[in-house]
Design a protein around this nucleic acid. Sequence first.
RNA 1: GCCCCUGUAGUUAAAUGGAUAUAACGAGAGCCUUCUAAGCUCUUAUUGCAGGUUCGAUUCCUGCCGGGGGCACCA
Length: 572
Amino acid sequence: MVKEILEKEVLTIIKEIFPEADISGVSVDVSDNFGDYATNAAMVLSKRVGKSPRDVAGELIKALEKEKVNLVEKIEVAGPGFINFYIADKFFIDNVAEILKEGHGIGKNEKEKERKVMIEYTDPNPFKVFHIGHLMTNAIGESLARLYEFGGAEVKRANYQGDIGLHVAKALWGMKQTLDEMPKDSATLTEKTAYLGKAYSFGSDAYGDEENTKAQEEIKEINKQIYESSCDKQLRELYDKGRQWSFDHFEVLYKKLGTKFDHYFFESQTFVEGTQLVKDNLKKGTFEKSDGAVIFPGSKYGLHDRVFLNSQGLPTYEAKDLGLTYLKYKTYKADLSLVITASEQTEYFKVIIEAMKQINPDIAKHMAHIGHGMMRATTGKMSSRKGNVITGESIVNNLIEMARKKISIEGINEKEKENIATIIGVAAIKFSILRHQIGKDIVFDPEKSISFEGDSGPYVQYANARAQSILRKAEEKGIELNAKDYTGSVTDIEKILQRFPSVVGRAAREQAPHFMCTYLLELASAFNSFYANTPILNSGDVASYRVALTRAVSQVLKNGLYMLGITAPERM
RNA sequence: GCCCCUGUAGUUAAAUGGAUAUAACGAGAGCCUUCUAAGCUCUUAUUGCAGGUUCGAUUCCUGCCGGGGGCACCA
């Protein structure tokens, strides 16, 4: 990679001619208008060696030219003291050949080699709707998982689902009140989950209604019975039914989204261990009693105090999360155990991690939480209690339907069409999530929905589909791919292609898939422009090179999309 | 009230302390008897305010103003 080679070279030279500067690293970056790469090293050195930046640059260039780094064609000093590198076209052409050689392995690296990573993400709750926020967590978690895998890590995907707790009690109470509306077993999953959503809403409203003390008592009682497994036959049946409906529904979505979990954890498994942990550590003073509840005094550590066991003695989500941490640790000894949730839980996880640090610092040191921004609708705050959420299913299905209408490939059957439409619809939602910085909120306008044009997943997919179409035709025509013997000049495309491994590295290192999005848009745009303005198949002598370049573009687009959890269809 | 995050064209976003802040959408003008028009080409416009650090600040620091989130038995 050019960046790394030049950085090493420049650093070596600096150590040689300015040892007194005592510099440990320099950065060489891609430059758009001034050569191919540039470094600010001379400006950084300037005050350390007491010379003007341009003079320092001059001396560095002299030394660099003597070294004759063969990929560099020309070096210049410019502006306040930048050193600009012009890279030889031959280097970029060789890189195209290299991409063809690497094939689907392009972008793989060993930065995370031997590292064991567990990522918990998505975390929908049975009995509640799978909403747009879950879609967001899923897209981010899946992408991070794939980025770690490309770095050589062993990744386990985990999903934690709240099949026990107050929200379940609320939904069950709601179901009991509306038994006559309950869908039959033969009903569709959509009908079943819609019913559960309504039942939860009903129970939640009743619980929140201060006048309705009877409902509150009953819901609390149901909650207790579930924890104790002491519920009657009818309640048990409702519970089993609702839980199963939810899980079936989630699996359908995961399949569409392209996520396959290795481990499922449930709150019904974590609460026993969690409760025990809190009780054990209450004696040791890690936890304290307060108003009949057991709390972790986060305020001692600059955090919030939080309740771990409520005054009924039942574990809250906090205690269950401690139990989950142990359960995960028993299942898989990860070097890094990541939890992805919306940023509203960021403060909460600081408390959990601090509490775990007090209980078992060896486990706590592997834990990390990533809070992503919230998906906010232009129509106001979404709330599953109020029932004005946008469900994951509706948004995905709408996009798939839109994509289906745009497909105009001849000679494919309905099933193939459905598959392609799904791939495109999922790409649209995932890309629109992932192209933002993870921590920032995303404003989602349900009216405008999500674009298939411009900065979008389908745009990148489309560029690849065009490339694939060219490759099919090239094969029919018998054009041989040859990237090595080309001696002409290169375009932006080769230069962008060359950066791919650096982008993969940065996206993984900074846990920031949006760098990959930005990169893919740039590459797709350069290729689309090339495609529109330059003949590829009918270009005589250079056809074999242009087709080779097309294949390299397609390969990089495919691998880049894969790292975002997006599939690239051959045709669309 | 306390704590955390955040403020970039009309809108949605991007920019490892670097040179002329980058795209898309929108608006306007063109381009399918050549490889998929989900496309291409051109035009249009931006760093909340006030200081500070720096050769250089959208980026770092302080204050103010706006937005979001969290803060006891929900998840």
